[in-house]
Simulated scan of single mutants.
Amino acid sequence: MKVRELRRDDVRPLVEDLWLPFAREMESVAPRNRLAEDVDLVAAGINYREDRLDDPDAATWVAVDDGELVGHAAASVESSAPVFAAGDRLHLGELYVCEPYRGEGVADELLDRVVAAAAERECDRVTLNVDRGNDRAHAFYEKSGFEPRRTRMALSLSNR
């Protein structure tokens, strides 16, 4: 298995085989992750991913086993306001591994690549969000050295 940066010819397989299954799993974790019903999910996903390929502050890595995409991680640089002493951070927005490859170290390799990219970009830290109830993700990130630093709170306006 090899981890490498996403290439343009990977975009459709990424969207179809990894990103949409990831999104569907996240939908079951939290209702706010519900997928849109009025868009072509594949076409919208391809457009989104191609735009990210052109964004110098965004990066996506894929885990490839025997030519098949089996996992991915996507992150973006987030800058701190200039009044703070804190430097930039690389925010990990997505980390997903296909079910048959879970527990095989693929997520560790993807996360290692994200951490290396943060260092290459001279970021101070790597950040991420994990939904409540996603116990497996919480355990993985804590085992990898992440610590809770903040609590993100949300108010749903659709229920008001």
Rank of each mutant, 00 (worst) to 15 (best):
V70C: 01
N47G: 11
A86T: 09
A85M: 06
A36R: 13
A63Q: 09
A75W: 08
D51N: 09
R8A: 12
D112M: 01
D17P: 00
R113G: 00
D65W: 13
S80A: 14
A73K: 00
L53G: 01
P21A: 10
V114R: 00
V29G: 03
T60S: 11
G105W: 01
L41A: 14
A43M: 03
E27T: 12
G71C: 08
H91G: 00
L14S: 08
R34A: 15
A23E: 05
V29D: 02
E68C: 02
D65E: 12
A74I: 00
E104L: 09
A73C: 04
G103T: 02
L110N: 01
A85L: 10
E50L: 15
V106N: 00
R12Y: 14
E68Q: 12
L53I: 04
L53W: 04
H72P: 01
V77F: 08
P56I: 03
A85V: 12
R102P: 05
N47S: 13
E27A: 11
R7N: 12
P82E: 10
P100T: 06
R34N: 04
Y101K: 07
A30G: 04
E78V: 14
G45P: 09
D66I: 06
N33L: 03
N33F: 15
R34Q: 13
E16L: 06
C98L: 15
E27N: 05
Y48S: 14
V64T: 06
A85I: 11
W61R: 01
E25Y: 15
E25D: 14
V15R: 05
V11L: 09
V64S: 03
R34I: 09
V64L: 07
V115H: 00
R8S: 13
L14P: 03
A59L: 10
L20V: 11
D55C: 05
L69K: 04
H91S: 08
Y96I: 04
A36H: 08
A74F: 05
A23G: 07
T60I: 09
L41W: 11
D57L: 12
D65R: 10
A30D: 15
A43C: 03
L90N: 02
R12W: 08
L90R: 01
E25N: 06
L35F: 11
L69R: 02
N47K: 15
V70K: 02
P56Y: 10
F22Y: 15
A58P: 03
G67A: 04
V83S: 05
L95T: 07
D88W: 07
L53V: 08
E27R: 09
H91I: 01
S80Y: 13
V42S: 02
A43K: 12
A75P: 10
G87C: 06
A75G: 11
R102G: 04
L69S: 04
M26Y: 07
L110Q: 01
G105S: 03
L20G: 08
E37I: 07
E109K: 13
D9S: 13
L90Q: 03
A44L: 02
W61T: 02
R7W: 12
S79G: 03
D54N: 14
M26H: 11
L110R: 02
Y48C: 07
P13C: 11
W61M: 02
